[in-house]
Write a protein that binds this DNA or RNA. Structure first.
Lengths: 205, 205
DNA sequence: CGAGTCGTTGAACGGAATCAATCGTCGTGG
DNA sequence: CCACGACGATTGATTCCGTTCAACGACTCG
């Protein structure tokens, strides 16, 4: 785990929460490779994180011993913010693809939270909008037709930014295999319903 | 829209946020029938809600004129908490099945929020855990096998409480048609992997 | 230079959706 | 108060489309 603060911390895409935290606390840079664990279920919560690059799977061991994947975090996701209010991590975080993260000390965040009601309110708003976003994602996955699901996703997000997330990641996010996602994108492009550049996928009309 | 405060407000299942709000603010009881709108996209936000019974679909009209379903709220869901921090509702809420709700005045909630940092923190924790829950639901929907998906859901929730939610509702929640859900439940029961009572579905072992 | 991953395309299969029909129950309005 | 409509739960048959497996080129990173 490297502990320098390299320039990539500053080169990240903007995120309201991380922007605010970076301004007031000292971010810690973390690099991990596939197979590493960011944290393990049961450990006491010391940090919360923001994932800049890579893929991290959160899974929990149930009482019966089975493992359940709770979430697959992709670039742009925050990790363990829920654990800000618990003593221990309720799941393990295993690195799937070489990851770069920013970490903030839980104690410092909580302290800042207490000192600034305004920040607290901002955090509330962020979480609320995260709930909204997740609900839409959830709803989209109830659309059986791959094509319609993709269209619904683009309509909600207005566009798909493919600079930060790979097509494969997006496919996963909306619950399609990457194969069908590629195929349907192609179809939509051919039928003139979407346009693709190397940074954006947009609806036509 | 009835505006009395009937006893069902007190008979609801417990919910940390609603419990707290009910204690400090005056809840408003609302009954709506199928086809009614709880609120419409663009209206200014006056209330936030808690759904006791029924089903309410949140949908948004996009710029292109298409309608996208953002969320289908079921009994136990909060509605429009995200709008606590916006001026207008960003979607419309249409009643699908006769609904009973509790409403709280936005202004009163915000005022209470300002007066009590402790409540604010509590709200933060609730939203954070909601994020966690939604992420798991999302993840579950990436499991293709109906049977495995159901098992994963029960593992995460520990059990399925079928007193408040119909089987149909649960099927929808995890992204299955009610037909397959019934069928797979039956199979799981027959093969001795789950047990069903009229209030609970549990894993065996 | 080689390993690994992403993007892409092809072929075949399987399982969940879909359509349809039935039963029981609950609420309700005439 | 009862008949009717609506909806949940259930089962059957069929279809279809997304998954799965497989293979390949391009590119990146070490």
């Amino acid at each position: 785990m490297s502990e320098t603060s390299p320039e990539y911390i500053l080169e990240r895409m903007s995120h309201p929460l991380i922007d605010e935290l970076s301004e007031h606390l000292t971010p810690r840079a973390i690099s991990l490779k596939k197979g590493d664990f960011l944290f393990q279920q049961g450990q006491s919560v010391k940090y919360i994180y923001y994932l800049l690059q890579g893929r991290i799977t959160l899974n929990r061991s149930t009482i019966e011993g089975a493992k359940v994947i709770l979430h697959v975090a992709l670039a742009g996701d925050t990790l363990a913010e829920a654990s800000l209010f618990s003593e221990q991590y309720h799941c393990s975080a295993k690195v799937d693809a070489t990851a770069k993260l920013i970490g903030f000390k839980k104690s410092e965040v909580l302290q800042y939270l207490d000192s600034s009601p305004q920040f607290m309110k901002q955090l509330l708003a962020i979480l609320a909008s995260q709930v909204r976003e997740l609900r839409s994602l959830n709803e989209i996955k109830n659309i059986r037709s791959a094509q319609e699901r993709i269209l619904a996703y683009i309509r909600i997000e207005n566009r798909i930014n493919i600079e930060n997330l790979s097509l494969k990641d997006i496919a996963y996010k909306i619950g399609l295999t990457h194969e069908t996602f590629y195929r349907e994108l192609r179809k939509l492009e051919k039928s003139g319903q979407i346009s693709r550049s190397d940074s954006m996928i947009k609806l036509i009309i």
